[in-house]
Design a protein around this nucleic acid. Structure first.
Ligand code: FES
Ligand code: FES
Lengths: 149, 149
DNA sequence: TGGAATCCCGAGCAGTTTTGTCAGATTTAT
DNA sequence: ATAAATCTGACAAAACTGCTCGGGATTCCA
């Protein structure tokens, strides 16, 4: 039950873009250095994000990335599903949609199916309810008062 | 974001035990064959479950496993955390408890931390709210009416 | 008392996924 | 022209998953 680094890095990268929203393209190097991430790795994550229409890119010198929409229109759920695939805690839940092969043999008789559905719904609800704007607001609101370490 | 077969198999196995609750020990072979699981693999899952006090075992011929508590006293969350480890969608959330090493450098400044906490809480709430008894009740309640396939 | 059934335990292993690295091609501002 | 940047695909180490196997220990039953 882990969210991979793909998801986490993507969120922080797009949060960084959100902070610069409206101020032209931001090169990947800046994001990577600022957050201490591998530029090469981050590069790979931007590919699906661009194809999904979450970010836009400008090539060449003085180029970079920028959000394709307003921060309040991009949810954390979108970001994570884009780079990690659909939120399905068990493969069975995927089958109903695509269903070229059906890994869920006893779908209607399976007593546990309801559990996984509830978990997925719950996660989707949480992640779909948080936007990049939310993160910015929360960060501004926090006082950064005395932290133990 | 997957729940591994460890978690799923354990839940179905313990559900099977719940169905036989009060009727003596059930050998692993029966569970495995009934659910179409590998007996050898299931054996490995029972080890942590026994150590965690969820099941009791009786060795020797005519032995087997039984629930250590009533079905209504065993939550799905307990089962899954026992075999898969704590529900922490990111490692950072683990650190605060044990914390021999601290993977979460900027815990108090990290804007994304709140997201992962919400997700974990949400999952824990769902899984902690479902017991083996719940599953049995739901299954009895369902009419098993016309299912497409 | 002698199997036979059954749990107990650790080692090992093939396949997949994760987490990157790298080299080079392409585009564009200056 | 040159430098800055994105684009793309190939590759690889490490971790994880999903098992399998072999042998040991315990207990029931005939
Ligand atoms: S067999 Fe697919 S959810 Fe149980
Ligand atoms: S650095 Fe640990 S939660 Fe962000």
């Amino acid at each position: 039950m882990k969210i991979s680094t793909k998801g986490r890095y993507s969120v922080t990268a797009l949060y960084e873009l959100a902070l610069h929203y409206g101020t032209g393209p931001l090169p990947l190097k800046n994001i990577a250095q600022g957050q201490g991430l591998s530029e090469n790795y981050l590069e790979q994550l931007m590919l699906p994000l661009r194809r999904a229409g979450l970010v836009k890119s400008i090539r060449g010198a003085q180029g970079g990335y920028m959000l394709a929409r307003e921060p309040k229109e991009i949810t954390i759920g979108e970001i994570i599903t884009t780079v990690e695939g659909p939120i399905a805690v068990v493969d069975c839940l995927l089958a109903e949609a695509g269903a070229k092969d059906q890994p869920c043999e006893r779908a209607c008789a399976c007593v546990t199916r309801g559990i996984w559905e509830k978990v997925c719904d719950s996660i989707s609800e949480v992640l779909g309810g948080i936007t990049l704007q939310t993160l910015m607001d929360n960060d501004k609101g926090s006082e950064h008062v005395g932290c133990a370490r």
